[in-house]
């Protein structure tokens, strides 16, 4: 299995007052292609910090994180942005859809950043919206959608550029149980069909139920790493 992410002896410290708070303390992990894995743990366990570093939004204090053969710590801000733009997909707890744009345009946005031609963009957006079951909502605005539909648009936005890795931070936190299951089933389907690697940061039992690999974090350390 091709390695997508490799985390080696990762330490992340944040300055607090005159000292430091260690958010991650010697984390070693590997994620392969097509994994559906979750970083699970209580608040403050370091799961979002780890997701940040894997997503090249932050850099390690010590150790190394290699994402798609690129060491995150050695990237310039521009290179990090390039990595996120081309290879990574993000799903947020709050969907963060652009309110003035339609569903189609929200999903199209990452492709515009990649300068993909209009015809190709249209094809991919329509195809992706079909995957998430929103073909009939392409002209709707986010305000006209339910929470579950908004999160499906966010998934389509993350998936439209066919990223090798999708990072999702508490993607079901704002959804009811029914919608949460639908969203997770959609993501699972995409994971299986497209071999996209999904890494979640969550403490939601509903999400944990779908994970194929559960990595438990506590006080910045991996305390359990189980393949289900």
């Amino acid at each position: 299995m091709k390695t997508i992410v490799e985390v080696k002896k990762l330490i992340k410290k944040f300055p607090v007052g005159t000292g430091f708070f260690t958010a991650l303390n010697g984390v070693d992990l590997q994620f392969g292609e097509g994994e559906f894995a979750g970083l699970v743990g209580p608040s403050g366990s370091g799961k979002t910090t780890l997701l940040n570093i894997i997503g090249s939004l932050d850099v390690p204090s010590e150790g190394e994180v290699v994402v798609l053969c690129k060491s995150v710590g050695g990237l310039t801000p521009k290179q990090a942005a390039q990595l996120r733009k081309e290879e990574l997909g993000f799903i947020f707890q709050n969907y963060n859809l652009l309110p003035v744009y339609t569903v189609f345009e929200n999903v199209e946005f990452p492709l515009l950043l990649l300068n993909i031609p209009a015809a190709e963009r249209k094809k991919r957006v329509l195809e992706t919206l079909e995957w998430v079951g929103l073909s009939d909502k392409i002209n709707s605005r986010p305000a006209q959608l339910s929470g579950g539909e908004c999160q499906r648009v966010a998934i389509a936005r993350a998936m439209v550029k066919r990223p090798l890795l999708v990072l999702a931070d508490e993607p079901t936190a704002n959804l009811d149980s029914d919608n949460s299951h639908k969203i997770l089933q959609t993501m699972l389907k995409l994971n299986e069909e497209l071999k996209t690697t999904f890494i979640f940061a969550t403490h939601d039992e509903k999400v944990i139920g779908y994970l194929k690999r559960i990595i438990r974090l506590k006080d910045g350390k991996v305390v359990d790493d189980v393949v289900v």
């Binding site: 990595l83 996120r84 081309e86 963060n96 950043l113």
Partner: peptide, 14 residues
């Protein structure tokens, strides 16, 4: 604020 944050996250630089 959210839009700019999202755009930064998905790969636009500052």
């Amino acid at each position: 604020y959210g839009e700019f944050g999202l755009r930064l996250a998905i790969g636009e630089n500052k």
